[in-house]
Design a protein around this nucleic acid. Structure first.
Lengths: 201, 201, 201, 201
DNA sequence: ACCTAAGCGAGACGGTACGTCGGGTCTTCTT
DNA sequence: AAGAAGACCCGACGTACCGTCTCGCTTAGGT
């Protein structure tokens, strides 16, 4: 069996990532140290450094290795419903005690470390936005979205407020909030907007 | 002169904060150390620890001590114009090489340290949002915003996409982008939106 | 009352010295700090530094301020008896839990700090040796000590072994040991010595 | 070569001890700091703390690593001569500018730190006294020392006065002084002592 | 069936910074 | 005028991790 060795290496890699997550959950990302991961995982420090160049990237990998949600988009024909369902899922994730704080820490680390920012963008943000944009495009082709509307912009307007709550104002992310963002985005804030403009909270 | 002492203390405090910013600009926040600040400022470490409990809060204070922008809202009667002008100013700030990276680091640190998050919220985010909401309220009373529209939500939808670009997608913040967000927010994305919906980039 | 002030100063001085001894007894001389003395005594650090230039000298003063023993020599006509009684007293002192460890620390400090060594010599060691030599001289004049015997040397030979036990070999100081030193000193170790040479322990 | 590592470790240990002695000689033991030793030796502080738990024990090891004297006892058949020769050597050592002050500091430190006291006793004092007692025992068996004379006591009476001069009265240690102590010890101070009692200085 | 090469645990190592302690000096206000 | 209070610069403490580096052990393929 030629890949016996590789299998062991993969098992070790996995063990390290799981330990990283466990420690991050216990003590918080800020106090996480490679030293501690190595000790807890029963692994030499070198073995970690051989795989990851920095704590940030180790953490990125560890967190993404869960690839929890497989936030895949349904296409039922109703954009609003599909988006809502999709964003609900995302919000549930960020709200949960497992992912939430860790993902917040990851985004925080990305602000300090360009490598983390790049990895996060390519491996998590970009795929998500791509999928969303694709779903929007389908909707646009079906006339559910104004023709010519910049879909990247739409994406930003959908995600931005959520991240704003998550990272900046630290208010709780609720499904109700999602609904209101969606409604507002489709209806617009202007005075000529339809009568079903979202009501004040 | 009784406040000779206090004057000296204030001068030292100031010196420390200025040194902090200088070092942060030179080496980046991540590599900033209290040790280095003390050495450069010609000050004992204790003198820093007496004033700030952590590097994060020292940095927060230092950055806010610039109170650079005094991002004050004009009220010319035209909401769109006023908001646009205001957000241009904010974007110029975040885009500039002085504030930009430091503010990014500060927001990053806030993700790791609740104390920084709280300080940042109370002393910077909250005042800004309050002013924006106030301006929106005036507009609403003048009929420029749909009656009953949740203004906090409006605020989120305005700021969110900017922060999303700034922190997450790391794309450049441009005035054009601001225009498009504003337009979209007022017009809505739905198919019944007015003909002047923003065109794709 | 002109010396009201001086009385207060003296009281403060006393308070400081008593606090010094108390702290030294609680934590040991090594961990004693002027900071702690000032705090406990309710006194400014300056007030201590105004009186003593160093921790060692403060401690020296504090310890000698007890001038516990007033180790005064009796003269009953019997040198051996007088010396024995006198040395018993000294041994009791060094053995006691009050003085013993503190005096040991003081002698230790004298090895590091010449000022302490000088003060200790002039104010404690010298007076003691002078008194002992005086008593020996009287004995010599009465024919109880060999004529021409160097009395300073005799003094050294009496004290030396005690200090050796106290400082170097750290064996317990007992009255029995004193007796044996005295006997040996008077009788000599040589083979022509009298039959009552001290027996092995 | 398997002990490459151990050899390097030993070399480092040696380097640290030599640096310690050099610094102690330059600045005195009191001002010696582990920080300075590490810096001068080009070594991390941890590397020192890994080897020694305290400055005192580092210094003890460093000083004993010289094991300068190899104060070995000759046995020419003449006790007095052998002792004299031996003690001369010890006195020369303590008098010398190399060992003298450092050894004094070591004994001083032993008064503050029981661990140093224990180490000093076991590794330096005890071996010396053992050798002296052994030599005295041989003399006693040959009739040069009064039968039954407590040899440990004899040892104390020989060493005590020297240490007394060295540590307490701080008078110079001379060979003449050694001679007088030896004579006195053998002859005794009593009035029946032989005519050759040591004359006053 | 040996042998070489790689991966690994363990952990020593030179560094940097941490947050704390105390030394000795200074200034201000209080008594 | 002396003192309580305590800020201040400084130097050192002992600790924690960093990222690099041997070292000896295991485990396979390759010969």
């Amino acid at each position: 069996m030629p890949d016996n060795r590789e299998a062991r290496a993969a098992a070790r890699t996995d063990m390290i990532m799981r330990t990283t997550l466990a420690l991050a959950q216990e003590t918080g990302y800020a106090k996480l140290s490679i030293e501690a991961v190595a000790a807890r995982a029963g692994v030499g420090k070198h073995t970690i450094y051989r795989r990851w160049p920095s704590k940030g990237l180790l953490f990125l990998d560890s967190l993404l290795s869960l690839n929890e949600p497989a936030l895949d988009y349904p296409d039922t024909g109703d954009v609003m419903a599909d988006l809502r369902r999709q964003i609900y899922a995302a919000v549930d994730l960020l709200t949960g005690p497992q992912w939430g704080p860790l993902y917040q820490a990851l985004v925080g680390e990305a602000q300090h470390d360009p490598a983390v920012a790049a990895g996060l963008g390519e491996r998590f943000i970009r795929p998500q936005t791509d999928k969303t944009v694709a779903r929007l495009r389908a909707a646009q082709e079906q006339g559910q979205v104004a023709p010519g509307f910049d879909l990247d912009l739409a994406m930003s307007i959908l995600s931005g407020p959520l991240y704003f709550r998550f990272l900046i104002s630290q208010e709780p992310l609720t499904r109700d909030y999602v609904d209101r963002v969606l409604d507002a985005l489709f209806a617009g804030m202007g005075p000529r907007g339809p009568a079903d403009a979202p009501a004040s909270a």
